[in-house]
Design a protein around this nucleic acid. Structure first.
Lengths: 149, 149
DNA sequence: TATTGTTATACTCTATAACTATA
DNA sequence: TATAGTTATAGAGTATAACAATA
């Protein structure tokens, strides 16, 4: 990993990336609307979207996913816990770590967020079925190296 | 616009969108690193990325682009102006509006940010030239409806 | 001694409402 | 009166450092 094998970006893929970025940018309004809908701040929503009912993770892992410090997560989780959306569970092996358990109420919020945010932006729906399959194949290849965690 | 003509999302395009979102998510680390590099906060970086030297825009337009209130932009622009990256220019026609002019120093920061953030993520570079052209064609179609402003 | 999560601090972001200066 | 931007205020996010409990 010391020598980045990164091929230089061609103008073609650079423009494609730029347009992809635009697609995301134009989708941000939907994200803020969803935050307002569930009455959570954007970081709180990102936290809820990072957690799963099946696989509780430690505070520090959530901090990593959110690209912020452990100390920030303390406050964010405090507020989510105040609302009854998540619960801290001390680990059985290492009692320093606290696992984040999504509550029933939290799962309902997650489902609502999925309804609000899961659908692709309209631009993608304009693609024909064949083009949609093409796009999926390309994205599978592009994310193939990225482990699905 | 009252009857959304949105076709229901197929599983195919939904999965494609999900993978696109993952590509963006895995790119966020680069964004925060770029913020640290230029010593600006994420909102300040977003503001700098929203402005152009050639086409100054009013404060309120920047607020719209950033999906936040005018009053937030006041503080963000205050700090950018303190650093000499932008300048407020009162409009000649309507002296209430203030146009945001990027300074020389601001352009340098914009160029640096483009270096740090303009390149596509590695996953896209793994695509063959033919696939890259395919992706570009798809993105052009998907963003075709979205006016380039 | 090292690590997980919390607390303390200072600064920034955010929404809301009240204000000013223009129009 | 309406609008563009500012100011005031309170709550939330953020990085950093110091700290407690545990390992």
């Amino acid at each position: 990993m010391t020598a980045p094998t990164t091929a230089p970006a061609s103008p073609v893929v650079s423009e494609a990336w730029h347009l992809m970025a635009r697609l995301f940018q134009s989708n941000r309004g939907k994200f803020f609307a969803a935050c307002a809908e569930v009455e959570l701040s954007p970081p709180q929503v990102m936290a809820m979207r990072s957690l799963t009912r099946e696989h509780p993770i430690p505070m520090s892992e959530l901090a990593g996913l959110m690209h912020c410090d452990n100390s920030n997560v303390t406050g964010i989780v405090d507020r989510l816990e105040d609302r009854g959306l998540v619960a801290r569970q001390p680990g059985t092996q290492d009692r320093r770590v606290k696992y984040l358990q999504v509550t029933e109420k939290g799962v309902a919020v997650q489902d609502r967020l999925q309804d609000l945010l899961g659908d692709p932006p309209e631009g993608l729906l304009a693609l024909s079925p064949a083009e949609q399959r093409q796009l999926l194949a390309l994205m599978k290849k592009a994310t193939g190296g990225t482990a699905p965690s």
